[in-house]
Nucleic acid binder design. Structure first.
Length: 506
RNA sequence: GGCGGCGUAGCCAAGUGGCUAAGGCAGUGGUCUGCAAAACCAUUAUUCAGCGGUUCAAAUCCGCUCGCCGCCUCCA
């Protein structure tokens, strides 16, 4: 009630001295809602807190994403990781950072070697196919190109050097032709994953028969080449025999090669925190004395019926399968991007259909914005646009709160739809809205913002139908509509004239 | 067993101490329309897994219980 008063005095009688109320909102003027833009904040897995993001170097932001192993076709789990990495990449660019972004391909490991052996192809030939396919899938999903896509097999010399240097530093040891990392020599071991090493189920975790480690938790840096590997030429000479690198050292070597000792952001799936990222960091930090990354950003998993999508669970769905079912990559991107990256997504076709319907609402809006003729100006539109962009920016800067950001977009559409329907947008306002949506879509990359398609022969048919409709020649009008439908065109009559769309062009 | 995460409407989901608990999908009602399709508008949670506690005030903080998921192995 006090809020409603313009002026006057309110006397409040409290049973006690009332001190404890003084700091409450009852006695303070209403604070402004937190819309102020505070800069980018990310949840850092290392500290388990949201932190302000500032790159180490003011004119260079270094960013790395663990890429796929080149022995299978991309599944939706991969796609989610790529898209989260893409969202971070685009958000950094949108906020004015000069980003150097690398994503690797693991083309030299147990899976690729055995895959090549099974198909009778050379390792190079085998992995090249999958790398090529991955690149096509990424492009279809609208993932912005990285600065580079290094392959593990191109950096083996550096891995050998790292292993040797770690032996010299006493952080690693050689045993029966393999090199292992000695975790007892690295006091920060466990800082990222916070796995309590003394309580780990050691007996269950490592196949001790395959290794000759001093401590079961030590991990392999370089693996002694097997007879089969020697026969197929997959081995590398070192002064301690023929070996090949293990997975953890590959990522460490590549990130340091391209991005230096400490990068700004390292991202991947959260299931890789232990042991992969822990080990990657242990290698790098033992070598340089500096942490491998300042920010670790981990995306949550993609589930199917509540279980992680993986080969073990026999529930893998590939991007390709969904495209064959008629979903467009853009719809799949929208489905994967609209959930917060730190929440699991439980996949189902029904949820994909829901995403498709939701995307349709965005598409209807942009289509009408582009294709209906300009009209009179509306006084409040500029304010709505500003409000939307501010809300979008604040939401995305807050650890990529995509739900809130899309909420801002839908709120805006709800306000502007009636304005469009009433024909109250002039040319400049349309242009202003379009430019704002383009800035937002530089981050999401899901909207359809291309110019209203010019198709004279279709427009001609539509004119013909309009003429028939004016003359109330319904048979002729319907006939034209059927002819358009045969060309895959659906006509929608609105109060401001007809709008058409190409079927299936989503 | 250890460590970590999650549980908000029919479904998805934001909100993490104090304004009417965002938004989307589905449903329902309506508007527009020659018809059709689409669209547009309105509407849908006295309550946030359950119980107990802290507080003037709890979805939000604390404790316990229940349910689900991940990692600790291959897979990624």
């Amino acid at each position: 009630m006090a809020e409603q008063l313009e002026e006057g005095v309110i006397v409040v009688i409290l049973p006690d001295s009332g001190d404890k109320y003084l700091s409450t909102e009852l006695f303070t003027s209403k604070k402004e809602k937190k819309t102020k833009s505070e800069g980018l904040r990310f949840f850092n897995s290392l500290t388990r807190k949201k932190e302000m993001f500032q790159p180490l170097s003011p004119n260079r932001t270094t960013f790395y994403a663990c890429g796929p192993t080149a022995y299978e076709i991309a599944n939706l789990g991969h796609c989610r990781r790529f898209i989260v990495a893409d969202l971070i990449h685009r958000l950094l660019l949108h906020n004015g950072y000069n980003v150097e972004f690398y994503m690797n391909f693991t083309d030299l490991d147990d899976n690729t070697i055995s895959g090549a052996a099974q198909t009778g192809k050379s390792l190079q030939e085998f992995t090249a196919y999958y790398i090529d396919e991955f690149m096509k899938e990424i492009e279809a999903l609208g993932v912005k190109k990285a600065t580079g896509y290094p392959r593990a097999s191109d950096h083996v010399d550096e891995m050998i050097n790292i292993a040797h240097e770690l032996i010299h530093k006493g952080s690693a040891y050689e045993q029966h032709g393999s090199v292992y990392f000695d975790i007892s020599k690295f006091k920060n071991y466990g800082k990222l994953s916070r796995v309590p090493l003394d309580k780990i189920k050691v007996g269950m975790t490592v196949d001790l028969d395959d290794y000759e480690k001093n401590n079961p938790l030590d991990f392999t840096l370089m693996k002694r080449s097997t007879l089969a590997e020697l026969k197929s030429g997959i081995f590398f000479h070192t002064d301690r025999g023929n070996m090949r690198p293990g997975w953890h050292i590959e990522c460490a070597a590549m990130t340091m090669h391209y991005l230096g000792d400490t990068m700004d952001i390292h991202t991947s799936g959260r299931d890789l925190i232990f042991p992969h990222h822990e080990n990657e960091n242990a290698i790098a930090e033992s070598l340089t004395g500096k942490p491998l990354a300042r920010f670790w950003i981990h995306s949550e998993l993609l589930l199917v019926d509540g279980k992680k999508m993986s080969h073990d669970n026999h529930n893998v769905i590939t991007l390709r399968q969904l495209v064959e079912q008629g979903y467009t990559p853009r719809e799949i991107r929208f489905f994967l991007i609209r959930n917060h990256y730190r929440k699991p997504i439980n996949f189902s076709n029904k949820k994909l259909d829901t995403a498709r319907a939701s995307l349709r609402r965005l598409d209807e809006f942009t289509r009408k914005l582009q294709c209906l003729p300009p009209d009179l100006p509306h006084p409040k539109v500029a304010a709505y646009v500003t409000e939307m962009e501010e809300n979008f920016q604040a939401a995305m800067q807050d650890d990529m709160n995509v739900s809130r950001a899309f909420g801002a977009l839908f709120d805006f559409i709800k306000k502007v739809n009636p304005i469009i329907n009433a024909g109250q947008l002039d040319r400049d306002q349309k242009q202003y809205i379009k430019e704002t949506l383009e800035r937002i879509d530089a981050v999401f990359h899901v909207l359809k913002l291309e110019e209203c398609p010019l198709a004279p022969e279709i427009d001609k048919l539509i004119q013909e139908r309009e003429k028939a409709r004016k003359e109330k020649d319904w048979a002729k009008a319907d006939n034209v509509r059927i002819r358009l439908a045969e060309q895959g065109i659906t006509v929608m009559d609105t109060a401001k004239g007809p709008v058409w769309k190409e079927n299936g062009n989503n």
